[in-house]
Structures are given as structure tokens and as C-alpha cells.
Amino acid sequence: MARPEIPVTLSSSSIFSLPPQHVFGMAEDLGYDGVEIMVTQNRWTHDPTKLDELAQRHSMPIHAVHAPTLLFTQQVWGSAWTKVARSADLARELGADIVVVHPPFRWQGSYALDFADGIRDIMDATGVIIAVENMYPWRVRGAEIQMYLPDYNPIPQDYDYVTWDFSHAATAKMDSLAAIKLLGSRLAHVHLTDGSGSGTADEHLLPGYGHQRVTESLRYIAASDYDGAVCMEVSTRGQKYPGHREEMLAESLAFARKYLARNTPSEGEQ
């Protein structure tokens, strides 16, 4: 029996310079299968009614919600646990499968101490999967600074579910293919992007433009029993002319479709 193809969704952070409602029309026009909404200071990202109306209008389901657990969203939705809980409630109201969260910052002591158990409690209460995203060490003058507790690498941690981001892996100088193999069934969500790994920047390059083993990783995922989505989370801030952003996102989608294809017939079946 043919297995279902893996959905490829578009993160609202990929068009961060535009209001989040633009992601739905762009995803529809380019042929994506859904969207991921990053909760930010923009009120549209807080409102399930408005988001659901957009999803219905454009026939673009919201597959994931990215909780406001970044540095630039520290003022959104109050305390750390409130951010996670409200994100899970929002995802449940929208019918989204996944909430993406970052690991705790080092100054969030009590939150970090109970993090794994706390997200399990919220998952049990809401029925929403919470997948902790891999991050990377911060470096100053060549020295690493521990910004996340217990670590930026989720693989050895007691997390039931993980989101894997190729750009973060590049910055951390990690091998994504090896990591994905180690994660196995704990891999619940993927941020498709790339990175050169040559500096300290989190680049979010288009897939195939960096040095991560993205092609091999996608083929491995396609051959596995993975039943989540792959979300395009790339930077389009370097657009050079009108329509360039759309070209970048269309190229990235074609890349994902090519290497995630599951049911392509063999030569003898064509």
C-alpha cells in the first residue's frame, strides 16, 4: 500500500517582513500543504478566530504553532509556562498537530528544572504534541556561551518529541542526518532550511545552499515511517527584485517535493 506523501508547509517566519496573514495566500499560490504560525507581537498570531478564517479562506490548514519562546518574543504572553500553555491551547483550537518550543534559557532556572515534565503535563491536558527544537551554542570571541538549559542539543534530553532545524544544526556544527537517525520516532517536526556552518550566524539558507546533508536527510525521512510535516523555515530577507521571495519559496518547495517523494514509481513500473 502506498504511504501518504509528507506534507510540506510554510512558516510565517519565512516572510517575516510581512504581516503573518500574508503567509496563507502565498502558501496557497505556491502550492504548499499548510502553514506554521510563529506567535509574535503581532495580534493576528494570537487570535484563533482570525487565523481560522484565513486558513478556511485559503484552504491552508495550520499544522503547527511556534511558541513565543525566542529572545525577541520575551514580552509576549508573560511567563515561560504561560507561553507554552497558551500556544498549546491555540494549537488545539486551530486543530494544529504540533507546538514548537525552544529549550529554556539559562536564566530560567525553575522553568528549566521542570521543563520535560512540565511539557508532558501540558501535552496530557491538551492532546497537542510539544516538540522541543534543537538550538546552538552562542559564541563570543571564539568561546562558547551556554545559553540553554540543560543544553542546546535535545537528543540526549528526556523529551518525548523533537523539532529538527537544519540551520540550527549547521550553526552548532552538527550532522543532521546522524541526528535524525538517532532521534528515530522522537522526530515529530522538521524545519527545512540549510546553513554553511562557517560562522556563528543562524543563516536559514534555502535547502541545498548550505553544507548540511539535507538531500540525504530528506530521503531518509521519506523512507522512514515519519508521519509529520516538513516546514519550510528559510530567510527571504535578501530578496533582490519584486517576486524574488516567491521564486525562493517556490524553488525550496520543489526541492522538498523532489527529495521527500515516497510513491514515485520505479523504472519498471513507469
Rank of each mutant, 00 (worst) to 15 (best):
P7Q: 09
S14Q: 10
L18G: 08
L18D: 14
P20C: 14
F24M: 07
F24A: 01
E28H: 11
E28M: 15
D29P: 03
D29A: 13
V39Q: 03
T40Y: 10
T40C: 11
Q41Y: 02
Q41E: 15
R43V: 15
R43W: 10
W44P: 11
P48T: 08
D52N: 08
E53H: 06
L54I: 01
A55L: 10
H58C: 09
P61C: 06
P61S: 07
H63E: 07
V65A: 08
A67L: 02
T69D: 04
L70P: 00
G78N: 07
S79N: 08
S79E: 10
W81S: 03
T82N: 12
T82Y: 09
K83L: 13
R86T: 01
S87I: 05
A88Q: 00
D89A: 10
D89T: 01
D89I: 01
D89N: 07
A91T: 04
L94E: 00
G95R: 03
D97S: 10
V100Q: 05
V101E: 10
R106D: 15
R106S: 14
W107N: 12
Q108G: 08
G109E: 05
Y111M: 03
D114N: 08
G118Q: 03
I122H: 02
A125V: 09
I130N: 01
A131L: 13
R139I: 11
G142A: 04
G142W: 02
G142I: 09
E144Y: 07
E144A: 09
M147A: 10
Y148K: 01
Y148V: 08
Y148E: 08
L149S: 14
I155K: 01
Q157G: 13
D160M: 09
Y161Q: 12
V162Q: 04
F166K: 03
S167G: 15
H168F: 08
K173W: 14
M174Y: 11
D175G: 10
A178H: 14
A179R: 05
A188F: 02
H189P: 08
V190R: 05
T193E: 15
G195D: 13
S196V: 06
G197Y: 11
S198M: 15
G199P: 09
T200E: 12
A201N: 00
D202M: 01
H204D: 13
L206D: 04
G210Y: 03
R213P: 02
E216L: 02
S217F: 02
L218G: 01
A223L: 07
A223G: 08
A223H: 09
S224D: 04
Y226K: 00
V230F: 00
C231K: 00
V234T: 08
S235A: 01
R237C: 12
G238A: 09
Y241A: 03
G243I: 12
G243P: 09
H244S: 06
E246N: 02
M248I: 07
A250G: 15
E251C: 15
E251T: 05
L253H: 14
F255R: 00
F255I: 13
A256E: 07
R257G: 11
K258D: 14
A261C: 09
N263C: 04
E269D: 15
